[in-house]
């Protein structure tokens, strides 16, 4: 077990390094750099100044040299300075990360809590009207583009009904503490979470349903019934425990989709998370911020797949990591 985790962590580390190079190159290949932006903002700048600035920031060097320089700094614990926020990257990334963490956890939990039971019910009652409606909702959820859904949610729940704010992270200018602070944050998170989860709900419900349909037909379920065990324990203990294995896979895979969905969602709702940070950083050529955000998202996805692998070992005794 420990060996497995160590091996996987090493693999993840190598993946992370490789991806950091790819991300860095893509950013560097984008047209324009910070100095070009400065040029457009300051008409009095001369070509000599531009050349001097580019040399100063190392922007005249080839990509691999720039990557090497960036890496050398990162290894020393220096993530660089944000060009747009005028503070070290470490200072802005912390709170942003926490905001996104709340959003993603909320979205993931909500999707699991709602969708898995729906999928199970649909499978148990397969062919019934209920199954039909759950399927219909699931497909609708999967097909809705999240940015469109986000706009509709804003129109309905904040413009028309006025229940939730249309954007932001927390009420500005009031000092709330404890539970009131939590409620305030929750109010701002509701719509982003909803627009993030509806697609995931559809996907999870579909997978839970098909996994359950499979296990409900299994021989061991019939064996359990032949022992005289009642319906609900047969479904929950015998069928659902086996169905959990594919369900966990889908949840882990989808985590990366939720994360990329967060970029769009956070931008639409001006929610101050890493997703919005990435978006702003790319638009503003703020390389240092963008790179760190990339690395964090890649790291999270890698971490989730490790968690999923460990969960398999826990859920399925046939899988052993020794």
């Amino acid at each position: 077990m420990t060996n497995f985790i160590i091996r996987r962590l090493i693999q993840n580390f190598i993946t992370l390094i490789a991806l950091s190079f790819i991300c860095f190159s893509i950013l560097a290949l984008m047209p324009g750099d910070p100095v070009d932006l400065m040029m457009s903002a300051n008409p009095k700048i001369t070509t000599d100044d531009v050349a001097r600035l580019k040399a100063l920031y190392g922007l005249d060097q080839p990509i691999y040299m720039r990557y090497y320089n960036w890496m050398a700094q990162v290894v020393q614990g220096d993530l660089g300075y944000s060009r747009t926020y005028k503070v070290p990257v470490t200072e802005i990334i912390g709170p942003r990360l926490l905001n996104t963490f709340f959003l993603l956890t909320g979205a993931l939990l909500l999707a699991i809590i709602v969708a898995i039971p729906l999928g199970v019910v649909a499978a148990v009652k397969s062919g019934s009207k209920l199954d039909y409606y759950i399927n219909l909702m699931a497909f609708a959820g999967i097909s809705i583009p999240s940015f469109w859904l986000a706009l509709i949610l804003i129109i309905v729940f904040s413009l028309n009904l006025g229940w939730f704010p249309a954007g932001g992270t927390e009420t500005i200018g009031v000092n709330l503490t404890g539970f009131e602070y939590f409620l305030d944050r929750l109010k701002y998170m509701m719509l982003p979470i909803l627009s993030l989860t509806i697609i995931q709900m559809g996907i999870f419900a579909r997978y839970a349903r098909s996994a359950m349909l499979e296990t409900l037909k299994a021989d061991y379920v019939r064996t359990a019934r032949s022992k005289g065990i009642s319906r609900i324990p047969v479904i929950m203990k015998h069928a659902f425990r086996n169905a959990l294995i594919p369900i966990v896979t889908v949840i882990a895979i989808n985590f990366s989709f939720i994360f990329s969905g967060a970029i769009i969602t956070e931008t639409i709702f001006s929610y101050q998370g890493v997703g919005k940070l990435v978006y702003d950083a790319i638009l503003a050529n703020d390389f240092n911020v963008a790179m760190v955000s990339f690395m964090i998202s890649v790291g999270m996805v890698l971490f989730m797949s490790l968690v999923a692998d460990l969960l398999y070992g826990f859920l399925d005794p046939r899988i052993s990591y020794n």
Binding site: A218, D219, R222, T223, P317
Partner: peptide, 9 residues
């Protein structure tokens, strides 16, 4: 092979 539940002792 299949009549026993694989995840329960």
């Amino acid at each position: 092979m299949t009549a026993l539940n694989p995840v329960i002792r």
